[in-house]
């Protein structure tokens, strides 16, 4: 349904990738850990190594959770934009298929939050 308007109504998308100076906006969600109230957003260069997100970025964010140090990354289960996938930690975000405004979710089996509350 086209918008009802008093004249031509066509404006560019405000958050198109070219407005971000060469980075991808990406969203990350650690399932069953709602102490982090919402998925987090990061502007990352597309050629950033996937493993650097886990090793360089996550500790400063998710490290606040007592489960974080217990994560067995080899056992983690991932989805990218709704599809299951296995990230190659040594390849870049772009090579792993991440695009602008991609959503990455990960589950860490055996870890179900504070007192099992999925928090």
């Amino acid at each position: 349904m086209a918008i009802q308007s008093i004249g031509d109504y066509d404006f560019p998308a405000r958050d198109a990738i070219e407005n971000f100076g060469g980075v991808l906006v990406t969203y990350w969600n650690w399932l069953d850990h709602l102490m982090f109230c919402a998925p987090v957003a990061f502007p990352f260069p597309p050629d950033m190594r996937f493993g650097d997100v886990l090793e360089q970025v996550f500790p400063g964010v998710y490290g606040a959770h007592p489960d974080f140090n217990k994560i067995d990354w080899a056992a983690a289960r991932w989805t990218l934009d709704g599809q299951t996938f296995t990230p190659d930690l040594d390849r870049s975000l772009a090579e792993n298929g991440l695009g602008h405004k991609s959503v990455v979710k990960f589950e860490t089996p055996g870890l179900d939050g504070i007192k099992g509350s999925r928090t």
């Binding site: 086209a2 560019p12 958050d15 407005n19």
Partner: peptide, 19 residues
Amino acid sequence: WEPEKYVQSWLPVHEIFKG
């Protein structure tokens, strides 16, 4: 229903990323 309108959303987090 009206994507033409909301593609203009001024989302604070994205605006921070844009500088």
